[in-house]
Every structure is written in C-alpha cells, then in structure tokens.
Amino acid sequence: MAGIGHITQDWEPVVIRKKAPNAAAKKDEKAVNAARRSGAEIETLKKSTAGTNKAASSSTSLNTRKLDEETENLSHDRVPTELKKAIMQARMDKKLTQSQLAQMINEKPQVIQEYESGKAIPNQQIITKLERTLGAKLRGKK
C-alpha cells in the first residue's frame, strides 16, 4: 500500500445519555418529588373539567332534545305529476327513448327514468336541458 501516507486513528469520546422523561413520567409522583428535592421548577395546572365528560355532552344535549321534540316530517321535493307527464308526452312526440333523450342532454338514462317516475329531486338545470332538447315548455307559470 504505497502512497497512502501515514494512517492515524482519531478517537473521540462518545457520551450516552438517558432519554428525557416523557409526559407520563413527568407526572409521576417520584419524578415530582425528585424535582422538588433538586430545586427544579414545578408547574401545576388545575383543569376546570378534569375527569368529567362535561365538554363533550353539554353542547349536544340541547340539540339532541330539540331533535327529539321535533314532530314535523321533513322530505325533499319530488317531481310534480304535471312535470312527469309533460316530459313523457314531449319525449313520445319526438319518438325518443329514455336512453336517447338522456344521451342528447348528456345525462344518464337513470336520470330520465327518475324524472318520469317522479322519484327525482327537481334540478332546474336538467329541466332546462329537457325543455331545450324537447322543444316544449315543461314548467308551469309558478
């Protein structure tokens, strides 16, 4: 091994320390007493809702009670009978199937089927597309 030069070893001391105590160890009674003896600062906090589930239950009880007392049945608006019949009649006059009409307005055939059966929730954009494509006024004077 010619030309490498003088090889020396440089030894530096390695210091191994214990890990700092985690949060649970800091709360341990022995650790607190040891800190008191050594004169370290000790911080104590009293939590206002410690050990209770008050914060989680207080905000929902009022809403829960209101919902329990509610007697009104709420539901989405459905396609009116007049609109169902108008869509079907206009489609039949143009001699189109539900699938063909759906393709013309860039919607799924299921959408047309739901509108004609009355199960759909009315969407003004879809109704406007249907009116344009079928060339008929589907909405009444509302």
Results as ranks from 00 to 15, higher is better:
residue 8 T to S: 14
residue 8 T to A: 14
residue 9 Q to Y: 10
residue 9 Q to A: 11
residue 9 Q to R: 08
residue 10 D to Q: 13
residue 10 D to N: 10
residue 11 W to S: 12
residue 12 E to D: 11
residue 12 E to Y: 09
residue 12 E to C: 04
residue 13 P to L: 12
residue 13 P to C: 01
residue 14 V to Q: 11
residue 15 V to R: 15
residue 15 V to T: 15
residue 16 I to W: 12
residue 21 P to K: 08
residue 21 P to G: 05
residue 22 N to W: 05
residue 22 N to F: 07
residue 22 N to S: 11
residue 24 A to L: 09
residue 24 A to Y: 01
residue 26 K to G: 01
residue 27 K to T: 09
residue 27 K to L: 11
residue 29 E to N: 06
residue 30 K to E: 14
residue 30 K to F: 05
residue 30 K to C: 01
residue 31 A to R: 01
residue 32 V to I: 15
residue 32 V to G: 02
residue 37 R to V: 15
residue 37 R to S: 10
residue 39 G to Y: 07
residue 40 A to Q: 08
residue 43 E to K: 13
residue 43 E to Y: 13
residue 44 T to P: 03
residue 44 T to N: 15
residue 44 T to K: 15
residue 45 L to D: 13
residue 46 K to Q: 13
residue 46 K to L: 12
residue 47 K to N: 11
residue 47 K to D: 15
residue 48 S to M: 10
residue 49 T to S: 07
residue 51 G to K: 06
residue 51 G to M: 03
residue 53 N to A: 03
residue 53 N to F: 03
residue 54 K to V: 04
residue 54 K to I: 10
residue 54 K to Q: 08
residue 55 A to D: 11
residue 56 A to M: 02
residue 56 A to F: 03
residue 58 S to T: 14
residue 58 S to K: 08
residue 59 S to H: 13
residue 59 S to A: 14
residue 59 S to D: 15
residue 60 T to H: 06
residue 63 N to S: 09
residue 63 N to L: 13
residue 63 N to E: 09
residue 64 T to R: 08
residue 67 L to Q: 15
residue 67 L to H: 12
residue 67 L to T: 02
residue 69 E to W: 04
residue 69 E to S: 06
residue 69 E to L: 15
residue 70 E to T: 13
residue 70 E to G: 02
residue 70 E to R: 13
residue 71 T to L: 14
residue 71 T to H: 10
residue 72 E to V: 10
residue 74 L to T: 07
residue 75 S to W: 02
residue 75 S to C: 09
residue 76 H to N: 11
residue 76 H to P: 06
residue 77 D to I: 09
residue 78 R to A: 07
residue 78 R to Y: 02
residue 78 R to E: 02
residue 79 V to G: 12
residue 79 V to D: 10
residue 81 T to V: 10
residue 82 E to T: 06
residue 83 L to P: 03
residue 87 I to Y: 01
residue 88 M to S: 12
residue 88 M to W: 05
residue 89 Q to V: 03
residue 90 A to M: 05
residue 90 A to F: 02
residue 91 R to D: 00
residue 92 M to T: 10
residue 93 D to T: 04
residue 94 K to A: 09
residue 95 K to T: 02
residue 95 K to P: 02
residue 95 K to Q: 12
residue 95 K to W: 00
residue 96 L to D: 01
residue 98 Q to R: 14
residue 99 S to E: 13
residue 100 Q to C: 03
residue 100 Q to F: 05
residue 102 A to P: 08
residue 104 M to L: 14
residue 104 M to S: 07
residue 106 N to D: 14
residue 106 N to G: 12
residue 107 E to S: 12
residue 108 K to Q: 13
residue 108 K to C: 00
residue 110 Q to W: 04
residue 111 V to S: 09
residue 111 V to N: 03
residue 112 I to P: 01
residue 114 E to T: 03
residue 115 Y to V: 07
residue 116 E to M: 11
residue 117 S to H: 00
residue 119 K to G: 08
residue 120 A to E: 01
residue 120 A to N: 06
residue 122 P to I: 07
residue 123 N to C: 11
residue 124 Q to D: 13
residue 125 Q to G: 13
residue 126 I to M: 07
residue 127 I to C: 00
residue 128 T to I: 03
residue 129 K to N: 09
residue 129 K to T: 03
residue 130 L to Y: 06
residue 130 L to T: 06
residue 133 T to C: 13
residue 133 T to P: 00
residue 137 K to L: 04
residue 137 K to H: 09
residue 137 K to T: 14
residue 138 L to G: 04
residue 138 L to V: 04
residue 139 R to H: 01
residue 139 R to Q: 06
residue 139 R to P: 00
residue 140 G to P: 01
